[in-house]
Design a protein around this nucleic acid. Structure first.
Lengths: 140, 140
DNA sequence: ATAATTGCAAACACTTTGCATTTAT
DNA sequence: ATAAATGCAAAGTGTTTGCAATTAT
């Protein structure tokens, strides 16, 4: 999970630390929620660094496999990525302006035992997205 | 929402009724949860009918816009489609065998007002996917 | 008759891959 | 020195589109 020492997070998991990987991590840290590989690539280029899109994809795959990043598909057919933090987060997507807003509470936490009973699966995780109209779009 | 008269559901919404569209609807009715466009295409071809993949996509888009079908992105980069029924459904995806199982209860229904308070969005909908290990995979 | 739907092939967008070069250890 | 990571260009997937031919009304 992400916290202070982002720079060493990969090294700690037995991966090499490179400029590209640092750039991807720092892009994820400074970007709005749920960026696509292309967004991250553009962000890095615009910050003046050189990187290849393949490297972005490879880095994101690696970090997903190490549990550093979470990959989600929402709405369009692009994967979106974000750093996993201690707190489990979800999103609300405004159906007006398409903005994606992270929410920091999880309505499901208390319900998981109940779900385990009802389904006879061992529940190991979940993804939840809420849709709605954001305060700005309500005005129109 | 889907119910008995599937054949007229499109006609009722001002669209023409064609063999291809009937084939897509009946494929959706007889397939396991959450089929991709390709799955539906293959299913129809295997049942001996002729159809084009573009037609499948166009039909699914049309039906989504008419509220007959729900489109979801899960896991791989393929959109998955299913008929909308009266009851709102979610899925559990087994992380062992990748099976997708629909569940017929919604743990969120009672929580929406609460979420509206917490977020100041007008919540209009949500998507939830659960992940876990199914009873068969537990044995291994 | 005519407007909607289809098939086909080509275009698209996102993602993945092979291989030679570069870089971190 | 060596194994891992990168850039590049090419290939792979899923999806969309333009247009002429077909079909439902």
């Amino acid at each position: 999970m992400a916290s202070k020492g982002q720079k060493n997070i990969l090294r700690d998991k037995g991966c090499r630390n490179t400029k590209s990987r640092e750039a991807v991590i720092s892009a994820l840290e400074s970007m709005q929620a749920a960026a696509s590989a292309g967004d991250i690539f553009t962000f890095i280029k615009e910050s003046g660094l050189s990187i290849n899109l393949s490297t972005v994809y490879r880095t994101l795959d690696l970090m997903e496999s190490k549990g550093i990043v979470e990959k989600t598909l929402m709405g369009d057919n692009k994967a979106r990525y974000e750093l996993k933090y201690e707190e489990h987060i979800h999103h609300i997507i405004c159906t007006g302006c398409k903005k994606i807003v992270p929410i920091d509470f999880c309505p499901l936490e208390e319900l998981e035992k109940d779900i385990i009973n009802k389904t006879s699966f061992n529940i190991t995780g979940h993804k939840l997205e809420l849709y709605g109209i954001c305060p700005e779009c309500k005005k129109d």
